[in-house]
Amino acid sequence: MEKTQTQKARVPALPDLFDFSGDSVRIRSARCGSCGTYFFPEYHAQHRSGCSREGVEPVLLSNSGKLASYTIEHYMCPPPFKTAENISPYGIGLVEFPEGIQVAGLIMESDLDALQIGQEVETITYALYRNEEGQDVVTWAFRVLK
């Protein structure tokens, strides 16, 4: 029987958190049209006190932002964090997007010692491990823009 659909090469580890269908990877946030609050993920609502909570729209954050803080984790995170191999030491960054929200995630950078607050970073995908169907299971991550 002929295959009618090609299997996707990359699948997200959890759905509805980031979009990598286009040319660039974008984190999926949401914005309240009434109080202006951006929140992430889009299904964990946050509002200003007294807000009518009307007019919440999904928003794809810009592909790049500024490193607001970072750390280097020297010990491997326990499950349910799952990666193909031990990736420690690994970087974690808090990135400030121009929309007015900061989002945390892994930093994929070969020279972690060169990280600096204020650096421009872009959102990418990172393959945590390969599943039984041979697909890369991905999360969002950040990389310094050269």
């Binding site: 580890a13 958190l17 993920p41 964990h44 607001a68 984790e73 995170c77 990736i87 999360t139």
Partner: peptide, 26 residues
């Protein structure tokens, strides 16, 4: 949302403290 930080970002509690600490140092 606790599930997200473990599965998607590998962030045990000290990561949070370190991120704030780095900001303070700067």
């Amino acid at each position: 949302r606790d599930v997200l930080r473990w599965r998607m970002a590998g962030m045990p509690n000290p990561v949070y403290w370190a991120l704030e600490c780095r900001k303070r140092m700067a």
